[in-house]
């Protein structure tokens, strides 16, 4: 596909970027002091319509974002990469709900390329092949692991590792594009997080090898070895890589690590601000909007919990616009 095929899409997204929340808007929300006032501000800025619950607000924005992207991209298949993480999460939900008899429809997240109703039905009827591809394979493996070990964690790590491996494949296929860079970053930072968790809980070789997926800018072998040797050794290994700062942050606080990862993604996608054609501005708009939605959710949740302004401000993510 030629980059100029995205001319319509990019112009439409640029027009929508005008309505994204700015640093000033986020400041106003942090300062407003009450949940109801925050909802009022968001409604005035046309970020919301009639929603009053946090989940409703987030679902409304996610739906709006996906509708916009689906309408304007020339080839919808290109959007699959953006849903990878959600799709694998939904598989995890379907497998877990099969065992717990919980209502999966309330736990699924969107946007997703997999039809969630069909996913529930395929998992419940053990027709994993109908899910298709790597997703079907990992759903089956995860289901079998859950049956054999009666341990939900084993089922989880199979799906998480498959998600990481899929992101790595996308990254390798799109090395020169923004989405490739973002996928590589998500893949590596997810592996770092897993490796630290395994090190902290002193997991064995089999578990760590299964949990840590393929890496992009890290050596998977070294990462597993370091994780098995403990937190110190892992930190020592990561200090020699480009993720040194992030690793130090994880040791201080995992919440701060999540924030730094989100901020780093925003700094990667900011490059697309000056790109007029191609998929890069689509990828940038998607991740930019996701970060904005995440920030609003943090603010609303914090306001509802009565946290002070400074704590809220510390948790808010960097903005794309």
């Amino acid at each position: 596909m030629r980059d100029t095929d995205y001319a319509f899409c990019v112009a439409r997204l640029r027009a929508n970027e005008k309505y994204m929340l700015t640093a000033k808007d986020i400041d106003e929300l942090c300062e407003c002091g009450s949940f109801d006032l925050a909802l009022k501000i968001l409604t005035e800025k046309k970020w919301l319509t009639t929603q009053t619950q946090i989940d409703e607000c987030i679902a409304y924005q996610n739906k709006k974002l996906w509708k916009l992207l689906s309408e304007c991209v020339p080839d919808k298949n290109e959007l699959k990469v953006l849903c990878t993480v959600n799709d694998f999460f939904n598989i995890k939900v379907a497998v877990k709900c099969h065992f717990t008899s919980a209502d999966a429809s309330e736990l699924y997240i969107y946007p997703a390329t997999l039809d969630t109703a069909a996913l529930t039905s395929y998992v419940n009827s053990h027709e994993f092949h109908k899910i298709g591809g790597i997703m079907g394979e990992c759903a089956e493996k995860s289901y079998k692991a859950a049956c054999l070990t009666e341990n939900g964690q084993n089922a989880d790590i199979i799906i998480d590792a498959a998600a990481i491996n899929t992101l790595r494949e996308y990254s390798l296929k799109n090395k020169k594009s923004l989405i490739g860079e973002v996928c590589a970053f998500i893949c590596d930072t997810a592996n770092i997080k897993t490796a630290y968790r395994c090190a902290k809980t002193k997991k064995g070789k089999d578990f760590v090898s299964l949990a840590v997926g393929e890496c992009c800018r890290l050596d998977r072998g070294f990462l597993i070895k370091a994780s098995l040797s403990g937190v110190e050794a892992l930190s020592e290994y990561l200090r020699k890589t480009s993720y040194s700062e992030l690793s130090e942050t994880y040791l201080k606080s995992s919440a701060e690590y999540e924030k730094k990862c989100d901020d780093e993604i925003v700094s990667i996608i900011k490059k697309a601000k000056f790109t007029a054609f191609g998929f890069d501005p689509v990828c940038a708009y998607y991740y930019g909007k996701l970060t904005e939605i995440k920030s609003v959710r943090i603010i609303l949740t914090s306001l509802k919990a009565g946290l002070d302004k400074n704590t809220v401000r510390e948790r808010v993510r960097a903005l794309y616009v």
Binding site: T4, A7, F8, C9, V10, A11, R12, L13, R14, A15, N16, C72
Partner: peptide
Amino acid sequence: GIVGEAGAGLLSED
């Protein structure tokens, strides 16, 4: 044509 496509994208919003 290229400008037209981009223009249509903008006009659909504004």
